[in-house]
Nucleic acid binder design. Structure first.
Lengths: 218, 218
DNA sequence: AAGTCTATTCTTGTATACAAAATAATTGAC
DNA sequence: GTCAATTATTTTGTATACAAGAATAGACTT
């Protein structure tokens, strides 16, 4: 699994940006961080260039690299985009999904349900991710699937928070079932609407969560 | 307009990849191209890292940077994704578009029509781009708009070819009109379907064009 | 004491130097 | 003559060196 250095560093930085180790606006000091990674500035800078493209860091000429965390507005936009893209995947998948994939969705749902009753959030996550991943794949469009996967990953930390809300896991399961049914029946609009709602509600929950936190802080 | 070097080089390379100067599989020689750009390998390599993220080049460790042009399959996927994302933008825009933006769409359509009668493809392009750009913006979702714009740009060269087909410009104009009407009436599904069809048909035309070229080559 | 100008320090951007890996070439064996 | 192995050459990856632009601190003026 030997990878080139710039890849590894970029991934490590990405991880730290996702998990919040680096806050919004933080300057990523080349010499300090390069040293911390045990490399010289050259490969570290190459990693920064990589991250710049996906908008995780902003490279200001002659100033340095600054972390760009999505603010509340951007976050809502990301959730909305996620909902819409999942809906698209669902609509396409409705007429393209294979029997094997349908079986895998059922399996994921079963294990999700088991995780709910066992109160095992980690297992729930794993299976939930599998569920959505299968739908991305079954859109039959590799580009869309990759796009959806990337967005999913980017929103993962924020989804994690709001899933702790009371009763959300059970509700989410019901939505999963409805989505599979739509896919099974080859109903494009039903699948699309189901997925859109399923993801959009996460954005709304997140929104409310944020508002509550803000109010509590006052 | 002084930009940092890596940006400039990345853009220049991107341009050459888009316009086909670099064919699929071409290796981008670091020393030769860096010299050609009048810089050392360091900033050139930084530019490569950037391009790697967007999938325009593939960086194979210890081997070099290779151009990745979309093949027929990937191209169809890109057209399909474009159609779906435009549809999403249209649906969102239907309930968010401003009067000013509607006026701009009308204006763009008028100028498009004028370009058709004047047989001025360049003007047609400019206005067509404006038309679609306004819809992206009016989706009210910056992330989606950026995504749509990027895809649009990437498919531009391929769209250019197929627009020469007989009668396509006139048909395209009629579709534009229908889309504006749907947006004016605040009809989300009509706007979405109109845009999806409008873009998807380009993919189909392109597909047929490719098939013809292939047949002719035999 | 506040503000500004200047000098110093720090940081970025780029070039070059060197090491390791991959490719090409040459030699030798069969 | 063909194939294999070894050597030579190219090319990538990384470190270091240096130049130029920002940030900072200090001195001088008002």
């Amino acid at each position: 699994m030997e990878q080139r250095r710039a890849d590894t560093i970029a991934e490590a930085l990405e991880e730290r940006i996702f998990d919040g180790t680096f806050a919004d606006g933080d300057r990523l000091d080349e010499v300090r961080l390069a040293e911390q990674f045990g490399v010289s500035r050259t490969p570290f800078r190459e990693a920064l260039q990589r991250l710049a493209r996906s908008g995780l860091v902003e490279l200001i000429p002659r100033r340095g690299a600054f972390v760009r965390q999505p603010g509340p507005v951007e976050l809502l936009e990301l959730f909305e985009a996620m909902a819409e893209i999942e809906a698209v995947c669902g609509r396409l998948a409705a007429s393209r999904i294979s029997d094997a994939a349908l079986a895998e969705l059922h399996d994921a749902n079963r294990k999700c349900q088991a995780a709910v009753t066992a109160n095992d959030p980690d297992a729930y996550y794993r299976e939930n991710e599998r569920f959505h991943g299968v739908i991305y794949q079954q859109s039959g469009n590799g580009f869309l699937a990759a796009q959806a996967q990337a967005l999913h990953r980017r929103l993962q930390p924020f989804r994690r928070q709001q899933l702790r809300l009371r009763g959300r896991m059970a509700q989410s399961m019901a939505e999963h079932e409805a989505i599979v049914t739509a896919l099974e029946q080859g109903a494009p609009e039903a699948a699309a609407n189901g997925l859109r709602g399923h993801v959009a509600i996460q954005g709304e929950k997140f929104h409310r969560l944020m508002a509550n936190l803000r109010d509590a802080a006052e």
